[in-house]
């Protein structure tokens, strides 16, 4: 970990698809233990930013440093092992598995049972499964999803699936949590539940959270700092109070006034 408290540093990253720029010279930093929100109109490059961090997309230019590791040259599964977990905008659960097994599957990086041990199962692999079940049950408890523990996630309603996906990310015990629109498509009550979980995760475990969200009210309430993207450019950065009154942000969201 770096001494200046910066856990993730996105340094001058550019990304383009067939000539269309998704990100242009974006630089941002996530400090240890903060909730950093990335906001911006549709197509601003928010999800592209997360995909670069996960190395789904390889940036054309720039570097992404997490706790001293350069992520831009690292396979996605190695990045997970460094302690970065993520949820997806469109929910990417293992639909054929139960809630429990989805969370257990996320313990993959913490489990040691190898190929042969898995085939034999009894002994080390079984003991390990039981031990990790304990951890998973605590997360199930925390997210209040005990009642759907053994339900196949493909059959769950949308709001619960979002919650299970958050649980799956938590089961990885990450140091950095990337949340891609965790509250999209939810009603007010579900949104408030989700916001409470995010704040709880932050307070209890001091995890760094990088959050993409459209609901401005919620972002203003829970984020420590906000980065605003528009057409791949970072147009503002600051505390919710500063962003609220930022000229460039208001222009990006409300459009330019046509008065001469």
């Amino acid at each position: 970990m770096t001494t200046d408290g910066i856990q993730l540093r996105v340094d001058d990253v550019s990304l383009s698809f067939a000539g269309i720029s998704a990100l242009l010279y974006v630089t941002l930093e996530a400090r240890q233990g903060e909730i950093l929100a990335i906001i911006g109109p549709n197509g601003a490059g928010k999800t592209s930013m997360l995909n670069c961090i996960n190395n789904f997309y390889r940036p054309d230019k720039g570097r992404i440093i997490f706790e001293g590791h350069d992520l831009t040259r690292m396979p996605a599964h190695r990045i997970a092992q460094l302690g970065i977990a993520r949820t997806f905008q469109n929910i990417a659960l293992y639909t054929g598995l139960s809630t429990l097994d989805n969370l257990m599957a996320a313990r993959h990086i913490h489990m040691r049972a190898g190929f042969v041990q898995s085939l034999l199962y009894w002994g080390p692999a079984h003991r390990e499964d039981v031990a990790h079940r304990q951890v998973v049950e605590e997360i199930i408890d925390f997210l209040e999803i005990e009642h759907i523990r053994k339900a196949i996630v493909g059959t769950l309603p949308y709001g619960l699936r979002k919650r299970v996906e958050l649980g799956r990310a938590l089961a990885m015990e990450p140091r950095l949590l990337l949340l891609d629109e965790p509250m999209t498509g939810m009603n007010q009550e579900e949104k408030e539940d989700m916001a409470r979980f995010i704040l709880d995760i932050h307070e209890r475990h001091g995890k760094t959270i990088l959050l993409i969200e459209h609901d401005m009210g919620l972002v203003m309430d829970i984020a420590d700092r906000i980065v605003v993207l528009d057409f791949g450019l970072k147009i503002a950065e600051g505390t919710p109070g500063e962003i609220r009154h930022n000229e460039a942000v208001i222009r990006a969201y409300l459009g330019e006034e046509m008065t001469e």
Partner: peptide
Amino acid sequence: SRLGRAFVAIRDNDLAAEVLGV
């Protein structure tokens, strides 16, 4: 086992599986 959950993870969502360290 761990192996089987990794298998199913690949079947159900290979992108997510990768992000989750498989």
